[in-house]
Design a protein around this nucleic acid. Structure first.
Lengths: 205, 205
DNA sequence: TGACAACCCGTACATCTGTACGGTATACTC
DNA sequence: GAGTATACCGTACAGATGTACGGGTTGTCA
């Protein structure tokens, strides 16, 4: 479906991309026309048609500013602004980061959807689950958790801790992943679940 | 600047918000009109005027879909463009993500400076270093490595692999971190160092 | 009662907007 | 030389669009 873009098509795609990000809405045909110094709206129409058939764009017919970027395709081209490119393979020769070789793009949104936050891991109580001191836990805030998930929880108004969440016999067990530490067993009303750890980031080297 | 909203105004603001998120562009006056069953565009205009003077909305005069939410702009700046907030502590009560409590902000640039890329780990050859199948290795491209660093290397034109880099007796050893796998020992000229793994990202839950 | 705010209608209009049709020019390939 | 892809122009038009002006209803509060 998705094919190579010509220079003009790429530029126009970039302009649409910028408009959506900075202006909050896609441009009109004539705004694109003005931006590139075209003298006819048909010129733009042609390019949009090409971008659409190549799978980078969707158009809502007869709607003003009815342009939508097909996110997966566009991210691959503008990975620099959007996120971290994930390469399919690394081979000798050829430019490394070419968009033909990008499998996926890691964006902040994908790392942490909605309005999450990160917590730096203190101590080694979760080292059995490979959360070590200094690692970043990416936390999605939510008030409930499933059995077995790693959560950020507050017990009796203390500071939040990172533990594995278990439910047993009507009690809640906050379980460290390191046998040197003791599990905490409390009644549900003593615990506030702040969020669930959905990702891990570690700085190496 | 910003004042209380009436019920209608809040509903309309929510609708605009949804349109921007789901449709990719703000609605037109008449789309709002249709959504709420109004019979006159003036009705909408009045509400938009109110939302604007109350500071929730900006309007680009005489532009189709020329609506911008003020609030969302702010969110974008702090959460999406800037990065992931790293909290110092998590405590009960109080809003969680308040800027007084943000120790650091994880940006894409910090995760991966310059023009790096990510590689998905294949297999368990590096599991001793806690790089498991499906993890993302964040790679900073560079042609040289220090002893002990984890690198992405190409041996004899093959595909790149992730291994620990060692120098011994003029040879280069690419060492898996899992004893089930064999180290690769080659002459320096047979190896191309693509980059150094400077970070790890794992999706959990 | 009068003032006011919130809410809505109807109509009008200049301008904007997407799209269509037909045309030109250049470069490249078979 | 014919065919094709890319790139662009000019014109036209139906319908969409933001906005303006004037008027109406309901409920609240002093």
């Amino acid at each position: 479906m998705s094919q190579e873009l010509t220079g003009r098509q790429r530029s126009i795609l970039a302009f649409i991309h910028r408009c959506i990000r900075e202006e909050g809405a896609p441009p009109t045909v004539r705004e694109i026309m003005a931006r590139f110094g075209f003298a006819s709206p048909s010129t733009v129409s042609g390019h949009l048609q090409a971008l659409q058939t190549k799978g980078y764009l969707r158009r809502k017919p007869h709607q003003s500013r009815g342009l939508q970027l097909v996110q997966e395709q566009v991210e691959k081209i503008f990975y620099r602004t959007e996120g971290i490119p994930v390469l399919g393979t690394v081979a000798a020769g050829k430019p490394l980061v070419a968009y033909q070789n990008i499998e996926e793009v890691l964006t902040l949104k994908k790392l942490l959807p909605e309005r999450g936050f990160a917590l730096r891991i203190q101590g080694e109580s979760m080292s059995g689950a490979e959360l070590h001191h200094g690692d970043y836990a990416l936390v999605r805030p939510q008030p409930l958790a499933n059995d077995g998930q790693i959560v950020v929880a507050i017990v009796n108004g203390d500071e939040g801790t990172v533990k594995r969440y278990r439910e047993r016999r009507g009690k809640i067990i906050l379980e460290p992943a390191n046998p040197d530490y003791e599990p905490i067993e409390v009644a549900p009303e003593e615990v506030t679940i702040v969020g669930v750890v959905i990702g891990l980031y570690r700085r190496l080297s």
